[in-house]
Design a protein around this nucleic acid. Structure first.
Lengths: 188, 188
DNA sequence: ACCTGAACACCGTTCAAGT
DNA sequence: ACCTGAACACCGTTCAAGT
């Protein structure tokens, strides 16, 4: 019953999806792997590092190349992909947002969004600001949506639909703001 | 040595600011109040409820009425006030963002931003979406900035200045997006 | 109304030692 | 390389009982 790093990450994702982030403890994960808690520290320096690896894996599983085309379509697709990657697992948004805020992992999300903005006509500084703004919306919205699974079963369906619409509306707001900046650069 | 709810909240803010959110534990707070941990449960049902009260108090201390004027100026001022209210205390952004995501408190932040959008020409649905988008930016940006106090002392000053600029640039992006939506409504 | 005492069921992490 | 055993220093929460 000996394991590799990848086994640990895989089981961690399973625990996350089945029991939620609060129950993804080192002790719980260890018992799921049929191992003592201290064994996990052979694979990861600490829990934060393990969570960062889990976050990176969630993103790696959810992100694929965005289609060629105009920057605004690409950006919308990239942001939606990140969102979907987070929402695909229980507490996925909170996990990735926490890891990202801590500065350890989740870098792939930023890169994915930033790449879609290349060649939009803004300089690197503005593209970075725009990418971070989009990412804050994606993380914040997905976290709020995922944490708010405290609705009635009837209302939950309406709530989900409303959340999808609200996200795409919010994203269109940010995209419109970026477009205004792009146009002002083109005019001058 | 008997205390009221307000004493507990006040001491909780002091512990937060001095030691950070991770060290704001029920046991730590109790010992700071010279009381057994179980005594806290006479004032609050659980830790989440206590944190919600702390978040509300932080916002109450930082928010004041925004000036009369155009919606975009008011919105910028409101968003900056929320941001400043969070940054005024150690881990203030993470605390309020967490409480807000959990849906218990921090409602004042949304109300403050939403109020600035009244009379901008958008219907209530769009104003709510715009307010949430701004709030995601404020929370996300402030949390990232506050968590990233892991720079060299020399670089830290530059980092702070850069963060302020990046926030106001990101905010101007969102404001421009809202303006585009306002103008499209006016045209039709 | 506000607090104590004592317990319950947990955490993350370290480290010497085993195979 | 990977794991055990045993410990250390913590958590949030409950509840009968005290004043």
């Amino acid at each position: 019953m000996r394991h590799h790093r990848s086994d640990v990450v895989e089981h961690a994702i399973a625990v996350l999806d089945a029991y939620g982030l609060a129950d993804l403890t080192m002790r719980r994960l260890a018992s799921e792997l049929d191992v003592r808690p201290s064994a996990l520290y052979h694979h990861f320096a600490n829990k934060q590092t393990l969570l960062a690896a889990v976050a990176d894996e969630l993103l790696a599983r959810g992100l694929r190349p965005v289609d060629e085309g105009e920057w605004d379509v690409r950006l919308t697709q990239a942001a939606s992909q990140v969102r979907d990657a987070l929402l695909a697992w229980r507490d996925g948004a909170e996990l990735v947002a926490t890891v990202h805020a801590f500065g350890l992992g989740g870098r792939a999300a930023y890169d994915h969004v930033a790449e879609a903005l290349e060649g939009c006509g803004l300089d690197e500084q503005w593209r970075a600001t725009a990418a971070r703004t989009v990412l804050h919306l994606v993380f914040g919205h997905a976290t709020a949506e995922q944490t708010h699974v405290q609705a009635s079963s009837a209302g939950a369906i309406d709530g989900e639909v409303a959340a999808v619409d609200d996200f795409s509306d919010g994203l269109s707001l940010v995209v419109a703001g970026i477009r205004a900046e792009v146009d002002s650069r083109r005019a001058s």
